[in-house]
Design a protein around this nucleic acid. Sequence first.
DNA 1: TAGATTGTTAATCGATTAACAATC
DNA 2: TAGATTGTTAATCGATTAACAATC
Lengths: 212, 212
Amino acid sequence: MSKENKRVSEAVIRRMPKYYRYLKEMKASGIKRISSRELSKKMGLTASQIRQDFNCFGGFGQQGYGYNVEELCDEIQKILGLHKEYNMIVIGAGNLGQALANYSGFEQEGFNIKALFDINPRLVGISIRGIPILDIDHIEGFLSQCEVHIAAICTPKKTAQEMVDRLIECGVKAIWNFAPIDVNAPDDVVVENVHLSDTLYTISLRMNEDYN
Amino acid sequence: MSKENKRVSEAVIRRMPKYYRYLKEMKASGIKRISSRELSKKMGLTASQIRQDFNCFGGFGQQGYGYNVEELCDEIQKILGLHKEYNMIVIGAGNLGQALANYSGFEQEGFNIKALFDINPRLVGISIRGIPILDIDHIEGFLSQCEVHIAAICTPKKTAQEMVDRLIECGVKAIWNFAPIDVNAPDDVVVENVHLSDTLYTISLRMNEDYN
DNA sequence: TAGATTGTTAATCGATTAACAATC
DNA sequence: TAGATTGTTAATCGATTAACAATC
């Protein structure tokens, strides 16, 4: 699908969700068309970069007119794979795991959380927005019954890699990791290590004016 | 402090917390020295890049020997500003806000959460690990009494920018934003927009093999 | 001393920006 | 048609990698 089959760079991939956010907002507020120049001002990028980015995936604009907001938004939705449905599970039903389960935005984009898993017997059995918290020992059984595309890891650091290994063993093909460690997986598994504390530490670094 | 006063690039800044994670781990497990080559294998970077990165901040190694793990770890801790103490507040005491308050790792690095703020009267008055949840209307009063360095925004999208404006008005100099919108602030305020859903959307993009 | 590994300069690579012909 | 704006090529800029002298 990508134009000329040329691999899309990491930098471009990271900008796509941002385009999607802005375009969805504009679409919702009834804006019909946008030029790369206008969009560049809104987003703090250059118009050149925006046109280059979009043209990694195809020509979505029209000379002399710009881009149709709704059309472009839909195209980027497809690029991000948000036109599909995904089954998701959350490993670790602490505050962060529960926060993911409670956030309705993921569902709206096709990410359906089917269950949370935890080791804590006080959590096992209860439900969050109708999503059950199950015993972590039942994970293999669950995965044999339900095709899970993405697993979010919200466990403490020490159990994260072990859980990832078990999940991959059962065929899970994508890991969204929130544990403060880089988890590893075979090449055919997509891994996204989020590392919230890393982003906090860049704040304290930047608060030191010497590096700005 | 940065060598030759040359501004440190975004890419280097983003890698510093990762170095810190690995070095802290090695220090804890009793490893005394490491060469850039060994570290490069552990971290999946090149040895060249590691030496270039460290030399943005100073010469921490020794020819023929490599780097002293403890010394290097401490230097990077200082670069990240983790040798200092920060007062933090969390705006929005939902699951995500509570998750931040419950995570002890931030405190260990000098980030002390002093209070959470929420609009929900059912939450106001209770405590998380001894940290009180206060009424959002008392934020200005609180900030006049307590110097707050960093505010984490865990509110819904629609109130995020408004809260940021109020906080900055009261002198808060850094914003750690989890609401799914890019919040804006004057140049002297450090802003880190986290956007958890963006990272999820890059997963679904990557699951489409055309872009890999 | 000989071997190892840094710090740093030079070369390469890739990403961003600029320019402009194509075209709506 | 004239004006506007894209898609795309070329130029620039910056980041990564390679190489090697310095030195422990």
